[in-house]
């Protein structure tokens, strides 16, 4: 997934869509907006970033999971099998992006890129509702996918590349 920080207005529609689609319990979120303001008044620079699980290729949450509940499925999405999860919190501690939380029912929960929709060929809920079309989704191995095209034409960055996690959530600048 790629997030266009030049188009994002921070409306949090993606957050609401995610909570509705995935029945995220009250007080938790799988995606969120970070607002960053730099400079001295009146010359201020504001940037919005829609953040979520980075679906890392070298995922520390998967590495440290003692039961194998956290795993990477074909296509690169990192998932948690609820019935294998003991709720020890190791993956929550291991995530440099703090993208995981403990669901009130005890297991660990996180962004799944709405795998239930992706399996049907649809986009994740956040992508489909974004009013500014700032979220690009697709298969990075397919050069014609929306995300590949977005990354080809723009300069981008990822969050905390120094963590060595090889994050797969790109931010267009």
């Amino acid at each position: 997934m790629a997030v266009d920080t030049k188009k994002c207005v921070g409306c949090a529609d993606c957050v609401v869509a995610c909570q509705t689609e995935n029945n995220v319990p009250h007080g938790f979120c799988r995606d969120w907006i970070v607002e960053n303001v730099k400079g001295t008044y009146p010359s201020l620079d504001m940037k919005f970033q829609s953040e979520r699980c980075n679906q890392c290729e070298n995922a520390p949450c998967v590495r440290c999971c003692p039961t194998g509940a956290s795993h990477i499925v074909e296509g690169g999405i990192v998932l948690v099998t609820h019935d294998d999860c003991i709720g020890c919190g190791a993956c929550v501690e291991a995530c440099p992006y703090d993208a995981r939380y403990i669901h009130p029912q005890g297991y660990v929960d996180k962004c799944t890129f709405c795998i239930q929709r992706v399996d049907k060929g649809q986009n994740p809920a956040c992508v489909d509702v974004c009013p500014t079309y700032c979220l690009h989704f697709g298969d990075l191995d397919d050069p014609n996918s929306d995300v590949s095209k977005a990354l080809k034409n723009r300069s981008w960055y990822v969050l905390a590349p120094e963590a060595g996690t090889e994050p797969q959530l790109y931010y267009l600048r």
Binding site: C29, V34, E35, V37, K38, E51, V92, D98, Y101, I102
Partner: peptide
Amino acid sequence: MKEELMVSGKHIAEIYPVLHL
């Protein structure tokens, strides 16, 4: 002046602003 203000919408008590799990 190098001021920077960051506001996150991640309101999960055990995780933000500091992890305390």
